[in-house]
Design a protein around this nucleic acid. Structure first.
Length: 140
DNA sequence: GCCAACGTTGGC
DNA sequence: GCCAACGTTGGC
């Protein structure tokens, strides 16, 4: 099985990509949405994650990876939610903004654009590759 | 099981 | 700070 690709959102004021780089690995917990939870459970070790900053940034800033697959979320108070462990892979050469993503045809099907509130969403390999490519180019 | 009300999220 | 979209809850 090839690896899969996902996009995870974080509020940079709470836990930014830099925080993840500093920590080396972190527990991705607190997800309380069933669709997002199911996405967490569908992840395999080594799957690639785009790291998106919400709030006033609204941009993808880095690539991370699944360090540990889904296990019961210890912050869920006994409810049936899951957490994973996430490790940083690399910062992108430059951040790719939401506005740019909206203008890119190859990303028109991207789940983030259609359902911005979903905190963990799937990406196709093409979408992942397109975004990484955009991040290696200057703003056009 | 449906649907209205409500709370939360995130873009602008 | 506002509002639209969406998910969840609770009354029926």
């Amino acid at each position: 099985m090839g690896k899969n690709y996902w996009l995870i959102k974080s509020e940079p004021s709470k836990y930014s990509f830099d925080d993840l780089v500093r920590d080396g690995v972190t527990r991705w917990d607190g997800v309380r949405n069933f669709a997002a939870r199911n996405n967490l459970r569908a992840m395999s070790k080594g799957d690639a994650l785009l790291y998106y900053h919400t709030e006033d940034e609204r941009q993808v800033v880095g690539v991370a990876a699944v360090a540990k697959t889904a296990y019961p979320d210890p912050t869920a108070g006994g409810e049936d939610f899951s957490a994973i462990d996430v490790e940083p892979v690399r910062a992108l050469p430059r951040a790719v903004t939401l506005a740019e993503m909206k203008q890119e045809n190859a990303l028109s099907g991207m789940k983030l654009l259609r359902q911005p509130r979903l905190s963990v969403s799937p990406l196709t390999k093409d979408e992942f590759d397109t975004l990484v490519k955009m991040a290696s180019k200057k703003t056009g």
